[in-house]
Nucleic acid binder design. Sequence first.
DNA 1: CTAAAATCGCAACACTATTGCAAACTGAAA
DNA 2: TTTCAGTTTGCAATAGTGTTGCGATTTTAG
Lengths: 138, 138
Amino acid sequence: MDNYVEDILRRNHLSVTGSRKKILGLFISHNGALAHGDIERNAGEKFDRVTVYRTLQAFVEKGIIHTIPTADNSVRYALCKDSCSEGHHRDHHIHFVCSNCGNTYCLDDIVTPDIRLPRGYTADRVEVVAEGICGHCQ
Amino acid sequence: MDNYVEDILRRNHLSVTGSRKKILGLFISHNGALAHGDIERNAGEKFDRVTVYRTLQAFVEKGIIHTIPTADNSVRYALCKDSCSEGHHRDHHIHFVCSNCGNTYCLDDIVTPDIRLPRGYTADRVEVVAEGICGHCQ
DNA sequence: CTAAAATCGCAACACTATTGCAAACTGAAA
DNA sequence: TTTCAGTTTGCAATAGTGTTGCGATTTTAG
């Protein structure tokens, strides 16, 4: 497990440090998205808030995690699939926010639908967020 | 125009005050969504930040405006169509954020697609946000 | 092992959002 | 038009979130 995490970091040209291992480990062991606050709370040892921000930012830049837009005003992050690479995310799946347990899930098998835009509009990216009750809370 | 704004307020059982008239007027005259900051900057006379927050909150509760989720971490608001009523929003349209001019538009004619969710998941609400270049910037 | 480069933690700061309360205003009735 | 209860406003204080600069520490590569 520790090796696995370190491999990911090295593959992405990030130096292997305690905070990065810990935070990446959290994402791998947690099934669902994490907000900044979740990470600060669950990291066990206390990392500085700034370190967490910078670590998340580095992970996003390297294509290890991606951000998830939510209706409330909080940014969440989740692991990317292998198809993401540095500077080039391709998270074409939709996201699901459970209004019962509060978890956010990537529904990797459900691709974002094609949206027909008005004349003159072009979209680079389409985000779909569904909100309701997840499979576990049903 | 002034009468029009006052009518909307009265219809929604909100007392008619200077800040509410001004802020609602901004939404009506502005084609696109407004963030809290836009409102504070454009209100002309200066209203207290708190007043703006409370006014927006009141409008959302009454179904006059709705919030728009965005990928970055900012809340935007836009006028609701008549089908919205107190405590019951029905904004089934999608939203478009222009990465050039930064404006957010409600594409009222484009309804959110049906999403087929995994077994056990049920969605109350589906938000679609497209990002790209809008018709004016093309 | 060593030096250069990258990262970390602290302090400070900026922006966003919320709450309590007294003063001012609004709406409706006299 | 005057009055007054209820609503709304602005101020002050507070909390949360995110960013930047910088010296100290750690990591990497030679």
